[in-house]
Each structure stands twice: as C-alpha cells, then as structure tokens.
Design a protein around this nucleic acid. Sequence first.
DNA 1: AGCGTTTGTGACAGTTGCATGACAGTTTTA
DNA 2: TAAAACTGTCATGCAACTGTCACAAACGCT
Lengths: 233, 233
Amino acid sequence: MVAQDAATILIVEDEVAQLETLRYNLEKEGFRVVTAEDGEEAVLVANEELPDLIVLDWMLPSVSGIDVCRRLKSAEPTADIPVIMLTARGEESDRVRGLETGADDYMVKPYGVGELIARIRARLRTTRPSAIGKTLAFEDISIDTEQHRVTRDDKPLKLGPTEYRLLTVFMERPKRVWSRDSLLDRVWGMDADVDLRTVDVHVGRLRKVLNSGGARDLIRTVRGAGYSLDSSD
Amino acid sequence: MVAQDAATILIVEDEVAQLETLRYNLEKEGFRVVTAEDGEEAVLVANEELPDLIVLDWMLPSVSGIDVCRRLKSAEPTADIPVIMLTARGEESDRVRGLETGADDYMVKPYGVGELIARIRARLRTTRPSAIGKTLAFEDISIDTEQHRVTRDDKPLKLGPTEYRLLTVFMERPKRVWSRDSLLDRVWGMDADVDLRTVDVHVGRLRKVLNSGGARDLIRTVRGAGYSLDSSD
DNA sequence: AGCGTTTGTGACAGTTGCATGACAGTTTTA
DNA sequence: TAAAACTGTCATGCAACTGTCACAAACGCT
C-alpha cells in the first residue's frame, strides 16, 4: 500500500507502552499512525489530521474518553470519523453508554491486536473503502484504488492527481454534498492555503474529463452549498 | 420513530425462542423486523427485502452463518448491507475470521439485548443516516440535510438557498411560531441588514414551491406574530 | 359596514455565485 | 535539459437569486 493512500489512524492512549505496541502493529499493517496522550490533545490532533478512524482509550487523565467522543461527534469536521473505544470495564451498561455517545465500536481489554485490526478493517471498509484497496463504483464510473485507474462506461479516463483525489472523495460518499471548505480539507489538506474558488476550477476540470465521452454530467452543483456526485439534476 | 422511516432488520436465527425475543425487542425499538430460520432462506429474504441491516447467527443448520455472510457480501444488491454476527464461540481467531468474511460487527452469546440495539444503532448511523436522524420530516415534507434535497410527497422540489435555510429552520421545530426578527437572525444571520418585510417575500416564495403540486399550505401566518410550519389552518 | 393595519404578491433592478478559458509558475516526466 | 503535464489565480460572462417597492388583499376591531 502506498503511503499516500494509507488510512490514518489516531490512537488516544495514556499508557505509553500500550500506545507504542499499538503503533507498531498498526504501522506494520500499513496504516499511518498519529497519537495523542490525553483528551485535549486528542481533540486537537483529530481536528488537525482528520484521521480516518480513532482508537480511543476510555480511561484518560483529565478529560475522559467518553467526553472526548462526545466532543468529536458533536463538532462538524470530526463528526463522521468512526471511533473504536478501548476499555477495561466489561459491564454492559457501560458499553451501551459508550455506543450511545457515538462510539462506533467497542473492545474490552485485554483485547487481541488481531481482532482490533480486523475491526478497524471492517470499519474502514464502509467509511473509506479506498484506503483498503477496494474499487469504488457509482453509476458507470469506477475507480480501482489499488491501481489508480478510473473508467467510465469501461473506457479508461486520464485524470490529474488532484482530480483523482477529488473524485475519490465524491465516490466514497455519493450523493453527499461537500462544501468547498470540506473539499479543501480533504483534497488539499487541512493546512492548504488555497483560494476557495480553486475548487470550482478543479471540479470543472474533473467534469470535463468525466464527460469527455459525451456522457451525462454526474456532478451536481448545489448553489450556496457545494458539490456532490449524483445522478439526478 | 415513524413507521415510514423505520429501518428494516433481518434476523437470521434457527432457535425460535431466541428469534422471537429478538423480534419483540427490536420491534419495541421501532424497527421493522423480518426473519429467516436457515441459511437458504436468509439469502432469499435478504435479496427480496434488502434490509438495512442483518443480524446473523453463526451456527445454522445446513449452510453456516459464515457462508451466508460470504454469499451476501459477494453478490451485488446485498453486498453493502451491514452484518452483525452472533456466536457462541469467543475465540479470537473465529472472530477475526468472521470480520474478514465481511461481517461488520460481532457479538458473543450470551449478549445483552441493550448492547445489540446500541450496536445496531451505531451501525445504521453510518450506513443509513436517514433511518436514524439527519433527515428532517414534517407531514409529507422531508429534507435530507446531507444531500440538500427537499421532497414533498416524495416528489423533489427545487428551492433557492434562502428558501432552503428558511424551511430548515421551520422543520427543526415544527409548529413553533417564529417572529420575523428571529427568522432574520437564523436565516439571514445576526448582522444582516435587511428589511423585515423581506421575510414575507421569502415565505411567499417558499409557499409557492411547497404548494406547487397543488398540495395544502403548511405554513401558518400568525397575524402580528410571525410564521410557523403547521398542519391546521 | 367601515377603517386602519397587517400581510400577500408581481415586477424589477442590482447583486451574487458559478462556469470557463487563458496564463504564468511549478513540478513531473522523458 | 527540454518538453509535457499540472496547479492556482484571475477576468469575463451568464444565470439564478435577492431585496425592495408598490399595490392589492385580508384581517381585526369598533
């Protein structure tokens, strides 16, 4: 797996030994790993990096894992990032509480690293298929993310890097409307210093390639809101 | 949760007692439940009903749960339906195997029904947000906020940005009466420098679109006070 | 019924947001 | 090292949307 495509995992864990074990194992699996050792830092890093998934320890100094989770889930840019909670407690009521806060999954310590990785994979399979080497499809467009190949109606298309990333974002959640802002974050990166209007230009370029065969335009412009991949107007 | 929006859950379980307990609990939570008692039937029903989620027992007569899972995940219409596996075995290797077959989650018997429901919710939250929120509805009007789409009686409506925002405000608290002042704050922004009467015009425009199909007017004018979204005259 | 007040609405001019082609600087490729 | 490909910005043109006004209609009160 190429670095550029690797999914980024944020690990939040205050015990350094555990954290490093996890980091080692996840990196071995080809993930990009970023870390935080307490709740404050976790929220900060999450907003900066927009990781594809967060592994979150329940017991943290100062801000508890459950609070971190709530804060992440209630703020826009991080709300959709899946969270897997790690906890020493096994009581069901706690688990339920964790899930209802918005955590997407739950593992009880001591857990097997193999199972954690399987759960991570299972989760990414639905939220970020491209990070897992799956091929994405919408209508007659498809992307082989492993080979970086895009076809429409089985005919190969030639996209530039930015257009490719842009299309990938669209394809991972068809029909969802993306604001220019969030596209800048996802396609150009959080720290990019680029004019908002640049998004328009690249969407235009993507459109041109996508429709080069005379096919119907599948990118919807939502005035005042952004763009989406969609079949009807 | 309204019946119309209820997510459909397919339960696959050969022990009738367990199946009925589950059905009872899930229906109580507002889900629509369909069932199957063996692997063959499961695949059949899954293709027929295209449920939003499948709860799948690992141990089944004839075709094992893991095979059912594999078949569902490899065939088109059912490939994206999340599967939660139920199993008596607790060994990690089995769990990993389950997840790698394409199961999206995993619960070990005996499990708590509360936790199962929480997991179902957590799962639906990502795959069918409309079944769990993010969609606003009032009478036959609904807004998919993620897609920025508005329908009335399932027919799509075309709103301008301001009308969209206005309708969103109404839909978030149906029946509440909004003064022109507070609408200005919410729809135009606190610092907007706009004539109060402009609200009237936009309400008018919103009305026109909403009722274009000859439907009943759902916006109530409260003389001297403002407007609200309401079903009675 | 009559009157003052509040609301509905069509028209219109001004503004905004978006698509697009051009271009110069930069990076990648051969 | 030269050529090709890509990137970000800008200017332009157009269509959609916006806010205001003037007048008509509806309403509530006496």
